[in-house]
């Protein structure tokens, strides 16, 4: 149980690190938000669940925290991306790619 918890925590940490790389490497604001949101959501889930395995008496509360993260995290990033879209932020295009944009 404790070993499984520790493994989950390491996996969570790795995903959070990858999220950080994603935010650094991606070319425009939308792709950065994407990398950030996905990695932090699963990373936080995994990390919190790992803590729950190590301390089983906290498990219910930690699951409640996971539920709130699952509700709020995508909403937050969606709102940020919407604001950037309405403002007309720079959109990266693959070279030589022409596409009619949705208005």
């Amino acid at each position: 149980m404790i070993i499984a918890g520790n493994i989950l925590m390491v996996i969570g940490g790795v995903f959070l690190l990858l999220g950080g790389f994603g935010v650094l490497r991606m070319p425009d604001v939308f792709n950065r938000i994407q990398a950030g949101t996905k990695a932090t959501t699963l990373g936080a889930f995994s990390l919190i669940l790992g803590v729950g395995f190590v301390h089983p008496q906290w498990l219910l509360k930690l699951i409640l925290i996971i539920v709130f993260i699952a509700i709020t995290n995508p909403v937050g990033s969606s709102v940020l991306a919407r604001a950037a879209y309405k403002k007309g932020a720079y959109q990266y295009k693959k070279e030589g790619e022409e596409r009619s944009e949705v208005k």
């Binding site: 959109q91 295009k93 944009e101 949705v102």
Partner: peptide, 10 residues
């Protein structure tokens, strides 16, 4: 190489 081809769709 970053294999991405981003766009906004409905």
């Amino acid at each position: 190489k970053m294999p991405i081809n981003p766009g906004i769709v409905k």
